[in-house]
Simulated assay, not measured.
Amino acid sequence: RGESGTAAPNVLERDFSATQPDEKWVTDVTEFKVKEQKVYLSPVVDLFTQEVVAYRVAKNPCLPLVTDMLTEAISTLKPNSKP
């Protein structure tokens, strides 16, 4: 159904461990059903602490769901941090 985009390179190669904060971040968009309505969750998780750095929830899987979450996550970075 429709065209598929190009897959991003597998930079982590399934190595989900990190040796310091802000070394590796992961993200995904997950669909939930709440009171018979679909809700979408878009978090960023730091693999060192396993903590959610930032997240957004929306009623549809639109681009701002992800871009707003990334903007918030990036704003938490210390100088010279490069996840």
Rank of each mutant, 00 (worst) to 15 (best):
G2E: 11
S4E: 11
G5Y: 10
A7L: 15
A7K: 14
A7W: 14
A8M: 09
A8S: 08
A8C: 08
N10F: 10
L12C: 13
L12Q: 13
E13V: 12
R14P: 01
R14H: 11
D15Q: 14
D15K: 05
D15W: 06
D15F: 08
D15S: 05
A18N: 09
P21A: 06
P21T: 11
D22T: 10
W25S: 00
V26T: 01
T27C: 02
V29K: 01
V29Q: 03
V29F: 02
V29T: 03
E31L: 00
F32R: 06
F32P: 02
F32C: 02
K33E: 15
K33L: 10
V34N: 02
V34F: 02
V34D: 11
E36S: 14
E36L: 12
E36H: 10
K38D: 04
K38F: 04
K38V: 07
V39R: 01
V39L: 04
L41T: 00
S42Q: 12
P43G: 06
V44M: 09
V44I: 15
L47F: 06
L47A: 02
F48H: 08
T49Y: 05
T49N: 13
Q50M: 07
E51K: 09
E51G: 07
V52A: 02
V52F: 09
V52C: 03
V52N: 03
V53H: 09
A54R: 03
Y55D: 09
R56S: 11
R56D: 13
R56C: 06
V57I: 13
V57W: 11
V57Y: 07
V57G: 04
V57P: 06
V57Q: 09
K59G: 15
N60R: 15
N60K: 13
P61K: 04
P61Q: 07
C62Y: 14
L63N: 14
P64H: 02
P64K: 01
D68M: 07
D68T: 08
D68W: 09
M69W: 00
L70T: 02
T71S: 14
T71F: 14
A73F: 02
A73W: 01
S75Y: 06
S75A: 11
T76F: 11
K78H: 13
N80V: 06
S81C: 09
K82C: 12
K82M: 12
P83V: 03
P83H: 01
